[in-house]
């Protein structure tokens, strides 16, 4: 008999692969090809949305590693993204090559993240959330008032990134950069999660006392989670800064932190795929609401005005609805859909 049914592993290595069946690899490959060709047939505006999604994916995956996997709530990621943005911006203004500046921005953010992660040794849950909220407020204050470095409320103007002499001055060129970095970040986080560090993170989340009794150094690993997570947040910030080419302190306020938390809650805590879903969902939500407002405007002429004011409220409402009806996030829904089609049409 030819062919096989189900998965059959003959080595441990094959069992730890990300994509276990040929169909998975094929469909992912086709999707990636489609995505990489998309700048050729999408409008500039649509490609700019893709760029924003790519950047959000990096930030969401980073926050999910810290909050979803290691259980350390961070309300400071908006500010960490800001640290990365300003540091990278300062470096490129000083004439550094783009990638060196980006990496340095990540490293500085990692150090800042570790610094604000120190209270995590003693604080848990809501108390840690407050401690990281303090980080957010302190850093916001620094962005606004350290005028000689950050430009204060006026902001900081930047140039488009230049890589190997090529200036990435439009959305399509920028897309390949943001996409590449986003894919690399996702891969790094997925790798961590299948090795001893990722397991130690989840162990700390699930039962920190027994994590300690199997030999996990709680403090060191919490700090590592903060470091890796802030590093990636800093990278996201650096990309964002050079994509918008202008940064001001308001971009990195508490709303951004909450937005990222919303992404990982909507996507699914502790799931890499969920972070991607959440980033896509939250980035596209305002667009979707805008379209809805326009459509409703054809019936009720003035509604788009009210709709705009209601935007934040609707965002909050959707978050609450997700917490009630889909507490495990879009990733869980995705698994259910996959399971359904696996057995289709013999559901029982």
């Amino acid at each position: 008999m030819r062919g096989k049914c189900g998965l059959f592993h003959t080595s441990y290595a094959s069992e730890t692969r990300f994509f276990q069946s040929g169909f998975q690899k094929l469909s992912l490959g086709l999707f990636l090809v489609l995505l990489l060709c998309s700048p050729f047939f999408l409008s500039n505006y649509q490609v700019s949305m893709l760029n924003m999604i790519n950047i959000a994916v990096i930030g969401a995956v980073a926050l999910n590693l810290l909050t979803g996997c290691c259980g350390q709530i961070s309300l400071g990621h908006g500010a960490f993204i800001g640290v990365g943005a300003y540091t990278t911006g300062l470096c490129t203004l000083a004439g550094w090559p783009f990638f060196a500046a980006l990496l340095f921005g990540g490293l500085v953010t990692a150090v800042v993240g570790m610094l604000f992660g120190i209270p995590s040794l003693r604080l848990k849950g809501i108390y840690l959330a407050i401690a990281t909220l303090a980080a957010q407020l302190i850093l916001s204050y620094v962005f606004l008032h350290w005028t000689s470095v950050t430009g204060g409320a006026i902001g900081m103007g930047l140039d488009a990134p230049v890589i190997l002499g090529m200036s990435l001055d439009n959305d399509a060129k920028m897309f390949y950069l943001t996409f590449g970095v986003a894919a690399a970040s996702v891969l790094l986080v997925a790798n961590i999660l299948r090795t001893r560090h990722g397991r130690a993170f989840v162990a700390i989340r699930d039962f920190h006392q027994s994590a300690e009794s199997v030999g996990v150094n709680l403090f060191a690993y919490k700090l590592q989670a903060f470091a890796v997570s802030s590093f990636l947040a800093g990278i996201a910030g650096g990309l964002w800064a050079h994509y918008t080419m202008y940064i001001t302190p308001e971009q990195f306020d508490i709303m951004l932190s909450i937005q990222y938390l919303a992404m990982i809650i909507i996507g699914g805590l502790g799931s890499v795929l969920g972070s991607i879903f959440g980033a896509v969902f939250v980035t596209l939500l305002p667009e979707f609401l805008g379209v809805l407002a326009q459509w409703a405007g054809s019936f009720f002429p003035n509604i788009s005005m009210y709709f705009l004011a209601l935007r934040e409220g609707i965002f909050g409402l959707i978050l609450v609805l997700f917490l009630i009806f889909e507490p495990e996030g879009l990733a869980h829904r995705w698994r259910l859909i996959k399971a359904y089609w696996k057995l289709y049409p013999f559901a029982h």
Binding site: R196, R199, V202, D206, F207, S210, A211, S213, V214
Partner: peptide, 21 residues
């Protein structure tokens, strides 16, 4: 431990692998 103190979100295999940390 006296009361079960497993890592509830991890698979059995991963629980044992954490034990090998």
């Amino acid at each position: 431990f006296q009361n079960i103190a497993l890592f509830k979100g991890l698979s059995v295999l991963d629980n044992l692998m954490v034990g090998r940390h």
